[in-house]
Amino acid sequence: MEITTGTIVKSLAGHDKEEVFFILREEGEYVYLVDGKYRTLDKPKKKNRKHVETVSCEAGSPGEKIREGQRVTDEEIARFIKCFKKQKK
C-alpha cells in the first residue's frame, strides 16, 4: 500500500517503534504523524517516510476525514487507534 495522507501506519524505528499513527500530512521525504493521545493535531510527529510501514486504510476511519479536509478531533483519532489495536490482537 502507498503511504499517503490519512493512512494508518506503524513506526519501524525510534522510541515510538511498533506504535500506530495516522498520517496527518506529507512534505517530501517526511510525514507528520498523530495518534490523538501523545501526538495531537497541534503537535504532530515529523518522521522520515522510510521509517513507517502502511498497516491499513480502513473505510469510515478518521483518515477519510483527513483526506477530505474535514474537521477531525484528537478524541476520534485516539478512539479509532484504540479499537484498531484491539482488533489486531
Rank of each mutant, 00 (worst) to 15 (best):
M1K: 09
E2Q: 14
E2C: 12
E2S: 12
I3L: 14
I3V: 15
T4C: 11
T4W: 12
T5M: 12
T5W: 02
T5K: 15
T5F: 09
G6D: 05
T7S: 14
I8W: 00
V9E: 02
V9R: 06
K10Q: 13
K10R: 12
S11H: 00
S11C: 06
L12R: 14
L12F: 03
L12E: 08
A13R: 13
G14T: 02
G14V: 01
G14H: 02
H15V: 08
H15D: 13
D16W: 01
D16N: 08
D16E: 08
K17C: 08
K17R: 15
E18I: 01
E18S: 13
E19G: 00
E19K: 12
E19Q: 08
E19C: 07
V20Y: 05
F21K: 00
F22K: 05
F22L: 06
I23W: 07
I23P: 10
I23D: 08
R25T: 11
R25E: 15
E26K: 15
E27C: 10
E27S: 14
E27Y: 15
E27P: 06
G28K: 15
E29V: 14
Y30G: 04
Y30C: 08
Y30H: 13
V31F: 07
Y32D: 10
Y32L: 04
Y32R: 07
L33P: 01
L33T: 05
L33D: 05
V34G: 03
D35M: 02
G36T: 03
G36W: 03
K37I: 05
R39M: 05
R39K: 12
T40F: 02
L41P: 05
L41V: 05
D42I: 06
D42S: 07
P44K: 07
P44V: 07
K45P: 01
K45W: 11
K45V: 07
K46S: 13
K46E: 09
K46Q: 13
K47S: 10
K47C: 09
N48Y: 15
N48W: 13
H51L: 12
H51Q: 12
H51Y: 14
H51N: 15
V52P: 04
V52R: 05
V52W: 01
E53G: 10
E53H: 08
E53N: 08
V55E: 10
C57M: 08
E58K: 10
E58M: 09
E58C: 07
E58F: 00
E58Q: 10
S61G: 06
P62T: 03
P62V: 02
G63L: 06
G63E: 02
G63F: 06
E64P: 01
E64T: 07
K65R: 13
K65V: 04
I66N: 02
R67K: 14
R67A: 07
R67P: 04
E68N: 15
G69W: 00
G69T: 00
Q70E: 14
Q70Y: 12
Q70L: 13
Q70C: 10
R71H: 06
T73L: 01
T73Y: 02
D74P: 04
E75M: 04
I77D: 03
R79A: 14
R79G: 02
F80S: 02
F80E: 04
I81D: 00
I81G: 01
I81H: 01
I81P: 01
K82N: 10
K82A: 12
C83M: 10
C83E: 05
C83F: 04
C83H: 06
K85A: 04
K86F: 09
K86L: 12
K86Q: 11
Q87Y: 11
K88Y: 11
K88N: 09
K88E: 09
K89I: 13
K89F: 12
